[in-house]
Design a protein around this nucleic acid. Sequence first.
DNA 1: GAGTTTGAAACT
DNA 2: CAGTTTCAAACTC
Length: 791
Amino acid sequence: MEVDNSSPTEPVPMSDDSVNALVIDQGSNDQLGSHDYETLANIEAEIKSMNAEQQVGAQESSLQMEVEETPETIVPDVDMSEIAGNTSMEMSNDNQPKFIITADPTGTFSLVPEKPALQKIAPATTTSTMQNIAPATQRQAMLIVQPSVGGQQHFLKISHPSSASIPKDQLQTLAQTIMSGQTPDGNVVLRAAPTTKPPNLAAKTTGTNAAKSTQPIASKKNLQQNKNVFTTKMIISNTPAQSNQQLLIATPAEAAGQTIKFVSNTASNVSMGSPTKTITFAQAQQMGLIQSSNKVQHILPSSGQKQAMVVNKVSQPITSQGSKVAVVSRSPAKILPAPPTKTVAGNKIIQPNAQKVIIRQSTMKNTGANNNPIIRLPANQTINPNQIHQVQIPGRQGVQYVRLVSTTSATGTGNVVSTGKNKTGTIQTVGVTQKVGTQQVVKVVPLNTGNQTLRTVAPKTTGTQRILIPAATPVVQPKTNTITIPASALSQLTSGQAVLSTAGNVGNIVVLPPQYLQQTEDVKPKLQPVTSTAVNNSQSSSSTMASSSFTESRQSRSTSNADTNGIRPRKPCNCTKSQCLKLYCDCFANGEFCHMCNCNNCSNNLGNEEERHRAIRSCLERNPNAFRPKIGKARETGEDIRRHNKGCNCKRSGCLKNYCECYEAKIPCSNNCKCIGCRNVEEPDLSKKSLNDLADAAEVRTAQLSIGKSKIQPSSDITFRPPAASNAGARQPFNFLTDKVVEMTCQCLMAQAEEAEKNMLNEEMSEKLIIEEFGRCLKEIIDSASRADTV
DNA sequence: GAGTTTGAAACT
DNA sequence: CAGTTTCAAACTC
């Protein structure tokens, strides 16, 4: 899996034995400064005594974001009105789906519906889960950036659960610490340090934070007046090494107005009306909440129903003290296709009415009935960023196809989006892949059960952030299980394919076009892409790419097609008649939307979703496996080999041109193939080599004897594969008597005859030599057949 | 870039 | 299921 290594820090080695998908930078010295701890502790103490504020705070904003290191969020790329029918300009609309990307104590990330997640951090609705995650003694503060979009005035608010006041200087210090990821005394603020400690033990940890309370700068009323509030939450724990520590760096708002709000994250019961401080954007900048314009996420008011979202993370200074910085700058993501009425200027535009996206670290365990499923990949498996992974999620019917997106951060995380269908409807999942030592883990969480698709968003020029917003509000609390993807399953995944519907034969398609992948030039993959022998199960055109650099290849190929946003199509199609709604179209076949293609009359886009879905259903009716990988794995001679599931039917290309799907996938033809005159055989095949030698000998002799012009091709280029045979009986020697073999055998015999004649041998001796030669040829053929039979 | 070849997909 | 047609990619010039 390709990793976006834009993080300024080196990844921390991950433990192999853990299910942890991600290990976040941690260390004893990776802590908040004492000053910050003091500040935070005070804040936390006040948070304890507050409960409702946080809920209100959560509800006030219709768009909540907790931005953390490498979130991959997907937002509706077009027509937001279509997605969120109930999304009004009122940003306080709470009907919008909200999701939180969480990370459990072990570092496994997942995207979960906001509601349950919020409950976990909202003490007011005390539940067992919540208590488990946010104990009353837990010291956490939450920083919420809420851009007020609907109103005329735009504020940057810092609300604190407590009514007590926070000295301005301390508030500034805290804010700076949070936003910059670095404390005034040089310490680096790290994201949660995953430990094996269960979340509910967090309260037992002794924190040293001492935060002073702040004076509210904005009232809750102000918050409510701010419609279209964009909220970024930052949860800070008092102890960095705490298992449930959550430190999410808020994304600063732009002048459009945001609110930074401290809300309680504890379960304490305190009356509402938590004070909120409201400051202007300029004030915020002054205070250091917003560092600079180019590092600030801009959120612009929506001017229409449609909206796009570009989220840009706050640039975090890199400490020169060797400390680790968990939060790094990210480039924005862009919703695609971009609404025609909107232009994304630079990388800082966020159009409102977006739905809530909360990215936070979770304190949930990664196993158990109430947890999100974790897909554990074999240690020797490498995740192809563009590959579809077939996942069977317990508790759900059908197969989930998970596509790993190459937005991996320095910590080796990436997100996964999938959709599937069960009896209750489509289940969309979002997961995060991470690499722990040699093991990769994908945690999958269903997004909703509605019959709606996820939208895609393309990152802008740099950065790996994605926004994922489900179209439907209904959310099911996922059953969390651990799923292991065997190597064989991985191998059956097809790169270039997006998420597909599953068992139901029909279903939504969640498309995560590879061209939307992060394509930072300076980013070096951390999780190495598959090797040529691994899981380059590419289909059709995509398979021609070297599997070891699948993404890069595609990128390099379409560099000229890169738009201003750096979004490159994986491989533009040129369909003219199929409307890109048939499998002729590679984009469609790969489950992707056409983007920057050269197709005519294209309907493979969001604007024709209905038509597209119909086409998908049609394809699935014809062939339920239509969207499944064509390249699978077969076990032969004790080892897994890749092979075309269906086999090719080449007749004239000799399976040595890219017309042949096997050849294109760089795999030898197999028994599944019905090709004629196949020469796409495995090189080390001894049987083929024997025949090759036979042909070689024939050619050499023919040449030596100058017997006309041999049609035999150079021996080095000749390999034979017996005619297609799907059963063992077909491996009989006579099946090897192809025309060419016969021809070459005759050449050998003729050469022998010529030689005998040349040597002036008598007829008897000549016959003897010829017969002996014939015997050798037959023996070669038989041996080849017997050897091939064992393969 | 236009025309040809090729084989998968779609159709009958 | 087999034969034919359609289609778009691969290939050639």
